[in-house]
Design a protein around this nucleic acid. Structure first.
Length: 748
DNA sequence: ATCTGCCTCATTTTT
DNA sequence: TGAGGCAGAT
């Protein structure tokens, strides 16, 4: 088969070029994956490189798998020898071979964010550091940021009088030591340690330069400095590197991605050649026009002109809800209409949002409307308590130096080892600078009660027994036997409560996943399984064959496409997100995120917003996103809030009153789960009850009041004057609400 | 040692 | 709103 058929001119040029560094600017929907696949197949077919000499780095494991399969379609079984993976998984593979040179062992553990945070908190405690209103989270973010810039503790100097930096300077060295003592790596270590090894050991670098003679990197706009160093080192000898990306789709600067990597490519890699794919095959003309118009508002972007020769298409549709429930309900109705009129399947439709928290309301309402839906992300399977417990055991068996897992399992299920005993062990180990498990080995030297000692000895025996067992039975069998030996099912109260049933089911699910792993992997190991678990992304776990509406964040949607797309929550403060509002750089990134969202849509795009939203239990006014204005009016129907309504005007305040009252009523329905009808009647805009008559008194802070729905409460804040100011009220049984004065009665 | 309930606090996106 | 931390009860 001729590989070059079915490619346009620009795509063909990009595929065929193979004389050195190559940058492909690939606009959204321009056939990027196609070019990557064809290019790899071309390199192999033309015998320019052997399959195993090619390294392709993708953004998700799912994309890696797809790429591999598609290459195999062209070049046959040979294709499975190409090296494909995410930066993190490729690096993990390198480290499994080379890490001993840094003093770690090959069975290292990969720590997740919870583990990282826990370490920071312990350091703060152990070193008696006064956290002066800097959260552990802020420190962790700072450390991660440093690591993505390839700055290790010894190279970091804090700027004076910047508390986060000063604290980080103190904590970072301890943090890194702790990881090493635990034989554990965080996500950033996976990238930074190979760089460290390559720098110090040219012979090891040379080995990998010869192993990976041709390197391709997808989504290059989202690489950070460490990733850049990695690929420039690896490609340093043969200079065969091809990167693909789109600066307009850079959405990961918050985790260190540096858009400069792609913008500077031509200067950094000498004799490079740049290609541009500008024709979009995915979306209608109207969608592309809207996307271009929006992104044009950004500064600092490479010059490009994306166009579509597809049909004109339908207008973009704006939907306006009273509140987020109303917004979701209207999305549901629109989905039904789309499916009926265009004979679509549920899986042809996606709802995108800025934050995971938004999925809850959408899910509730869609379920009520009986629209099958699947949430990607949110509370992940491996984050659930029972699953984390068991996985912590597995992690500990794979690497007994893993103190974080040790802490988690030492008394779960409860075996009589309490806080005091653990503190003793902790102090002992900390003083001797050894792992908790090593400390446990010399428990005779500790000052403990006989009872505590026995409990610890039993635990130790359990561990050694099952360590031995692991050597004599298959991983799959062992995984189950270990859980049985623990009595974990009993601990879950083998029983009838809804919760226990769910948790037991999750453990079974976990065992299934292990069976799956064992039967699809050539040489299954505990450590290999754990690595897979640590590096799966939400999208990797997505079962796209299922016929359901997909709900996911805009970030997760990168690289995907759907005939019909809803972008929800187009409110100021949400998209763009709150603190991006006064920072131009961040605002640019939010806009790119919106751009990514728009360009996921093939045929029809809906943009939705709500007039009020509940934030942390507080109903508050929401104004439409500034991005809506950036879409040319002729491309969109029902654009609201035009003219004077942009700013909060008296007219607008009225709207708020009615809606906050209806929200209260609505929410009460939801609470009582009268649900279905409630939502529909809400839809029909039942007249709002203008209930209470004013008592004649002016509400003041500290007064007790009653409300028709929320009962009694106390006024804690007031905005405005007279009989009808905006009040913040702490209700006895409904928490804090913001309500207008005329809806409450003052108690004498 | 373990459990319960109250209080406080909050950035959001993910490997 | 909801998770996590902590004090006090069992």
């Amino acid at each position: 088969m001729n590989l070059l058929e079915g490619l346009n001119h620009a795509q063909r040029e990009a595929v065929v070029y193979s004389e050195g560094p190559q940058l492909i600017f690939a606009g959204a929907g321009s056939g990027k994956t196609r070019v990557l696949t064809y290019k790899i197949a071309y390199l192999i077919q033309k015998d320019l490189f052997r399959a195993h000499q090619i390294l392709a780095v993708t953004f998700t494991n799912k994309a890696a798998k797809e790429l591999k399969n598609r290459v195999e379609d062209f070049v046959g079984p040979l294709g499975k020898f190409i090296n494909v993976g995410t930066f993190h998984s490729v690096c993990a593979r390198i480290l499994r071979e080379e890490i001993t040179i840094l003093g770690y062992t090959k069975n290292f553990t990969i720590y997740d964010t919870t583990d990282q945070l826990s370490i920071i908190k312990q350091i703060i405690k152990n070193e008696n550091i006064e956290p002066e209103k800097v959260t552990p989270n802020a420190i962790l973010n700072k450390i991660s940021k440093l690591k993505s810039d390839n700055i290790m503790p010894e190279a970091f100097v804090a700027r004076k009088f910047i508390p986060v930096e000063e604290l980080t300077e103190r904590i970072y060295p301890f943090y890194q030591q702790t990881l090493k003592r635990c034989n554990a790596l965080d996500f950033d270590d996976l990238l930074i340690l190979p760089v460290k090894i390559f720098k110090k050991n040219p012979e090891i670098l040379a080995k990998y330069q010869d192993r990976f003679k041709y390197i391709l990197v997808d989504e290059y706009q989202d690489t950070n400095k460490t990733q850049f160093l990695l690929i420039s080192m690896l490609s340093g000898k043969y200079n065969n590197i091809c990167v693909v990306g789109d600066d307009d789709q850079s959405i990961y600067s918050w985790r260190g991605a540096d858009i400069q990597n792609i913008l500077d490519f031509e200067q950094t890699f000498r004799n490079s050649k740049t290609f541009k794919l500008e024709q979009n095959y995915r979306s209608t003309k109207k969608i592309i026009s809207a996307a271009s118009a929006v992104v044009q508002n950004n500064t600092l972007r490479a010059d490009k002109n994306i166009f579509s020769e597809n049909e004109e298409g339908e207008n973009i549709e704006f939907i306006d809800g009273m509140n987020e429930y109303d917004e979701a309900t209207k999305i549901g109705f629109a989905i039904e209409r789309e499916i009926r009129s265009k004979k679509l399947n549920f899986k042809d439709i996606a709802i995108l949002y800025r934050t995971n928290a938004q999925s809850r309301v959408l899910e509730t309402i869609l379920n009520r409307q009986k629209i099958p839906n699947a949430i990607i992300g949110g509370v992940r399977f491996y984050e659930r308590k029972e699953v984390k417990d068991i996985v912590a055991y597995y992690k500990f068996f794979a690497n007994v130096k893993d103190d974080e897992s040790f802490r988690r399992i030492i008394n779960t299920p409860p075996r009589g080892i309490g806080k005091k005993t653990i503190d003793t062990l902790d102090d002992f180990s900390h003083q001797k600078d050894i792992n908790l498990f090593e400390g446990l080995m010399s428990l005779d030297k500790m000052d403990l009660t006989a009872r505590a000692k026995t409990s610890l000895e039993n635990f130790l025996k359990f561990i050694t027994d099952y360590q031995k067992l692991l050597e004599s039975v298959s991983l799959e069998e062992w995984a189950r036997m270990m859980i049985d030996g623990l009595g974990y099912f009993n601990y879950l109260k083998s029983g009838d409560t809804e919760e226990a049933i769910q948790r037991t089911a999750n453990i079974s699910e976990l065992l299934n996943a292990i069976s799956d792993y064992c039967s699809t992997t050539e040489n299954p190991t505990l450590q290999g399984y754990l690595e897979e678990v640590a590096l799966v992304s939400d999208i990797d776990a997505w079962q796209d064959q299922k016929n359901a509406i997909s709900l996911m964040t805009l970030h997760s949607a990168k690289g995907l496409e759907f005939p019909v797309v809803f972008i929800s929550g187009l409110n100021q403060g949400l998209l763009p997100l709150g603190n991006a509002l006064d920072d131009d750089k961040q605002l640019n990134e939010e806009r790119r995120l919106f751009y990514v969202g728009i360009t996921r849509a093939e045929k029809k795009l809906y943009l939705t917003a709500a007039r009020t939203r509940n934030f942390r239990g507080l109903d508050s006014l929401a104004s439409p996103s500034q991005f809506l204005q950036e879409i040319p009016a002729e491309l969109i129907c029902n654009l609201p809030f035009q003219g004077s309504r942009r700013n909060i005007s008296p007219e607008f305040e009225d709207a708020e009153e009615t809606s906050s009252a209806s929200i209260a009523i609505h929410r009460e329905y939801v609470r009582k789960d009268i649900g279905h009808q409630a939502v529909h009647s809400f839809q029909k805009k039942e007249p709002v009850q203008q209930t209470t008559t004013s008592t004649g008194k002016v509400p003041e802070i500290g007064m007790r009041v009653t409300h028709k729905i929320f009962g009694t409460g106390t006024i804690t804040a007031k905005v405005g004057f007279g009989h009808n100011p905006k009040l913040t009220i702490r209700f006895n049984s409904h928490g804090i609400k913001t309500i207008f004065g005329k809806f409450v009665n003052i108690i004498d």
